Computed example of a mutant assay.
Amino acid sequence: MTNPYLCPNCKTNRTRFNVIEQNPVSVKLDPATGSVVQQYGDGDELDMFHLPYKGAQKLIQCAACGVVGEEEMYIKRAQNNPRT
C-alpha cells in the first residue's frame, strides 16, 4: 500500500479507505440442509468439480461512498487523476 488511491466511484476520496483481506475457505455443503459436510485445508486436494479460489486476496472499500473493488482500480484512478 505505497501507492496513492482515488475512489473510482465518488472521485473525491483520496484519504479514507478500508482494506479487506480475504481468507477463502473451501467447503462442501449438504444440499438439503446447507450444513458443512467437508472443509478443505490449505494442503488438502479439492475434488474434481471444486475449483480453487483465484480472486483477489485484498479488496479496498471507499470509506466515503462504500464502493468495494480491487486495489488496482483505486491505484489506476489516482494515476490517471494526479493531484495538482
Rank of each mutant, 00 (worst) to 15 (best):
D44R: 03
D30L: 02
S35M: 10
L59P: 00
V68N: 04
G41E: 02
E45R: 14
G41P: 07
M48K: 14
L29K: 12
M48V: 14
I75F: 06
P24H: 10
D42C: 07
G43C: 10
N23V: 12
S35L: 11
V36Q: 08
V67N: 06
E71T: 14
E45G: 02
K54R: 15
Q38S: 05
C65K: 13
I75C: 03
A64S: 13
C65N: 08
T33C: 00
V37H: 01
P31A: 04
Q61Y: 00
G43K: 15
H50W: 12
K54G: 15
E45K: 13
D42P: 11
K28P: 00
Y53H: 05
L51W: 15
Q39W: 03
A64D: 12
L59S: 01
I75E: 08
D47A: 03
G55T: 06
P31E: 01
A64G: 08
Q38G: 04
Y74A: 09
D42W: 10
Q61M: 10
R77I: 12
L29Y: 12
S35V: 12
C62E: 03
P31C: 02
P52K: 15
G55Q: 05
K28T: 11
P31N: 05
V37I: 12
K28F: 03
G41N: 07
D42A: 11
K58R: 15
Y40P: 01
C65Y: 01
E45D: 07
D47C: 02
P24L: 09
E70G: 06
R77M: 13
T33S: 04
K58G: 01
A64C: 06
I75N: 03
P24Q: 09
L51E: 07
G55H: 07
G34A: 02
K54P: 07
A63G: 04
V67P: 06
V27T: 14
G55S: 05
G69M: 08
T33K: 05
E45V: 07
A64R: 08
V36C: 03
V25L: 07
E70S: 03
G43D: 09
M48H: 14
Q38H: 11
P52V: 14
C62I: 07
V37G: 01
C62Y: 03
K76T: 14
K54A: 13
K28Q: 10
L51N: 13
V27N: 08
R77Y: 15
M73F: 06
I75M: 05
G66T: 00
S35E: 11
G55C: 02
Y40N: 06
P52C: 12
V27G: 07
P31D: 01
M73W: 06
Y53S: 00
K54Q: 14
P52N: 15
E72V: 11
